[in-house]
Design a protein around this nucleic acid. Sequence first.
DNA 1: ACCGTGAATGATTGCGCTGTCATTGGCAAT
DNA 2: ATTGCCAATGACAGCGCAATCATTCACGGT
Lengths: 339, 339
Amino acid sequence: MSKKKSRYAPTLNDVARESGVSAITVSRCFRHPEKVSDAVRKRVMETVEKLGYVPNSAASALASRRTDVIGLLLPSLNNNVYLDVVSGAFDRAHGTRHAIQIGNHKYSPLEEEKLIRIFLQQNPAGLIVAGGEQTEAATEMLREADCRVVQIMDTDVDPIDLVIGLDHERAAGEAVAGLLARGYERIGFLGARMDTRSQKRLAGYRRVIGDSGGEERIATSPMPSSARLGAQLLADLFARYPDTDAVFTNNDDIALGAYLECQRRAIRMPEDFGIVGFNDMDLLEELNPSLSTVRTDRYRMGHDSVDRLIALADTARPEGAAVLDLGHACMWRGTTREA
Amino acid sequence: MSKKKSRYAPTLNDVARESGVSAITVSRCFRHPEKVSDAVRKRVMETVEKLGYVPNSAASALASRRTDVIGLLLPSLNNNVYLDVVSGAFDRAHGTRHAIQIGNHKYSPLEEEKLIRIFLQQNPAGLIVAGGEQTEAATEMLREADCRVVQIMDTDVDPIDLVIGLDHERAAGEAVAGLLARGYERIGFLGARMDTRSQKRLAGYRRVIGDSGGEERIATSPMPSSARLGAQLLADLFARYPDTDAVFTNNDDIALGAYLECQRRAIRMPEDFGIVGFNDMDLLEELNPSLSTVRTDRYRMGHDSVDRLIALADTARPEGAAVLDLGHACMWRGTTREA
DNA sequence: ACCGTGAATGATTGCGCTGTCATTGGCAAT
DNA sequence: ATTGCCAATGACAGCGCAATCATTCACGGT
């Protein structure tokens, strides 16, 4: 046993010799099992078990010009929203031969373009990109890509193969309309890290407020979301619009901050003030009163996009791109009055 | 030209031809830049830029029997604790040629063993494993592995190359001792998902309670942590020990649940009841009163383990394994009295 | 008996890169 | 001038696998 090298790692050839078949037959047992007779496959698989053979993915990738890697490009890893996506993606990939490779571009389109180039160069089995803020070059690469691409989070992006997301503008609009329906009249918007999705939520807020003839009351910050920032934004909003009686927030972190700021100011919820968050993080349902919010199914976005990519792997680009709207659900809970 | 294919993807040879050097020299510019003269390297790198060349990692891995992948084996992806580790690991790997490959074994040692086998077979640049609950076979594989292994989270594991973590038993003991020092006398323990780390925290609780001559008051559940479960566990504890005046909890989710249950029961914190959580999730500092907890540096565990692995890649197993204790910090905040 | 058919299996080749060893040439010490 | 040495660069082979094409063989229809 040398100090280095897992030297006895068996190869395809070892398995083939041991099972009395040719190497390619062993290969087929993994890649195209339907092309091998049951008897042979069983024998080969027993040898595989016995020797502890694990295919060398580098060799496989080199020979077939195709890896089993599904790339998952995200704008952040500091956010529960994306953790849910990751979790769904990994759950679906688990037990398949596919691996998920995460890339984090930190909301930088240039960084994203770089990652897309690197990922595509490795011939992935598929690619999942979050959000539709790519550079032109990146979009072009995705269009030309030799693998299927799933765009997640938003539905209103320029589709390539498949889009799985929701309509943030509509979801926000519905939440704000729900506040109006519940008798709140002077509704504000709190938002942090105003990326495109946040912009869309703001647009939904504006549309509904505009339609209702109400006044826009907006407090935003380019900083990343946090509860602390949420409290500051609400304080800011109150400073400018003291009679605000409800807020719709960009996400649940901000909502929690606003919620706690209300508690500090002894503002009664839902009687005198309403809050609606966005995303439905588990924790916040437990508060008293519990937080009203808009539920989005991030787990399923991750899960289903991997599911579709596995199904679509090795297929040609479909004629028309499909858009899967997973929708949303307004969860009216304790921080808003009854309708 | 086939119907698809990132067709003009340039290879090493293209770069070599274009720069007027041999292929191996281009290779060296990437793998061993110090062995190439500055002039040549500059010229080659310009060509690389010009052609948009990206090395084919499969070919590189096959030829060198070494990938640039650092495996990160985690017991869960539904938990902020591990998200922080992931985040730190990705941040450190960003911009290097190394990629992080996550594996999620969902607290199953058998699954972990399988993942370790698969990962090692790909000749990773390094491996990070969380927790010390491996099967014997898994431990053996890690010991024989042809790459450096970093064990994170705990410090009291049987070390292989490098351990980066903290002493959960000690941290818990300190937290409980802190509660005693703050005048709480009938202290309970709430715990969910009693994995080894939770067991260690429980052991720390027991030690300190035992030393103080107090009575053990323990409510645990095998279920995954959640705020809801925390509330239930506290209710359970009160049912059995109505005079409990403080709890140390397994983690912050449980602590939040206990906190909210106290609010529902109108129990005053910190006067009549103390709570100390574990992990220091950002959100909970914002509560009123803010949650006392034990801060642990998960981000740094992820970050530093990648950092060390990059430094140690291609080195032999060191003689003595090193243990890096990142320590912890008891954050005495609003849910506990002054000392 | 003959052929055609198709399922099962095998032989060959090369994917793109890097380890190894060989070669070149410049320079300091003799 | 000669030697030895080292830095810089190159030629070649082969990593482990799968695409491609070739071969074998059983079987049913005529």
